[in-house]
Design a binder for these strands. Structure first.
Lengths: 131, 131
DNA sequence: ACTGTATTTAAGCAAATACTTAAATATTAA
DNA sequence: TTAATATTTAAGTATTTGCTTAAATACAGT
């Protein structure tokens, strides 16, 4: 029980010497307002945060479409492993599929192309992106 | 044992009907050349792929510096939890520290500011970034 | 109908994550 | 020196991740 809790009940960790209390409260509210934006951003980055998936997104950005089989060859990993990564990307609506015979072609979801291109903006020889 | 393996020994998964074999080989080599770039990118995105860490990076981008204690208040999580996230960010050289008394201020590592600003380019009211 | 190919799904498992609580460290002030 | 504060570190744990292998599904050609 510390006396300052009487005037600042929302403070519960440390006695701040430097921080501006109002500003802190303001940041809390800002983060609350765009909570869903952050949630989506974190989801995209979590997916891009895996080496195999990052490369898949890169390759799909370069090539129009690729099948799990090709990706398996390029990335040198088993087809089921690739398929499971593709499923996560599709669940997050980052890629879409087109079926022709027994082949399933994966491509970048058009309305997510900007977000995905941004991921590779620091890659050398990367095509420029309209934001 | 399939006959085509004699002329294309590096192919080991599926019989491709559509893909250009040379192009596939080309992508393998390209990915090999920039393997370390992808590794670093994936590392950054994996770190940004956590909601708490993404917010920490955002807040540090807005404010010049913040201590674990303030972040704990803003994010409404325990101090050790925040501290462990900050450690990961520091291990990856995304943030740095400055000590004053018993307070440790965290701030964005200057040479990583561009990479980090890029993470939030789709956030509304985000300041523009020089790439 | 049978075989082969492309893909997904399921089950199992080792490793990584992200928290928790408790203890250790460092600094400041009484 | 003692007490309080800020922070980190350690240990424990539940959950998630990312692969593996095997099985299931779907389609095409013979």
């Amino acid at each position: 029980m510390v006396s300052r809790e009487k005037e600042l009940p929302q403070v519960n960790s440390c006695i701040r010497l430097f921080a501006d209390q109002e500003q802190i409260q303001g940041y809390k509210e800002t983060l609350d307002e765009i909570e869903d934006v952050f949630a989506r951003l974190a989801q995209v980055y979590a997916l891009a945060g895996n080496d195999a998936r990052l490369k898949i997104l890169y390759l799909l950005g370069q090539q129009n479409e690729l099948c799990p089989c090709d990706l398996s060859d390029i990335l040198q990993m088993t087809v089921p492993a690739v398929s499971q990564h593709l499923r996560k990307l599709r669940d997050a609506h980052l890629v879409r599929t087109r079926k022709t015979g027994q082949t399933i072609f994966y491509s970048i979801m058009p309305d997510q192309a900007n977000v995905i291109d941004q991921l590779f903006i620091h890659i050398p020889n990367q095509k420029s992106v309209a934001v």
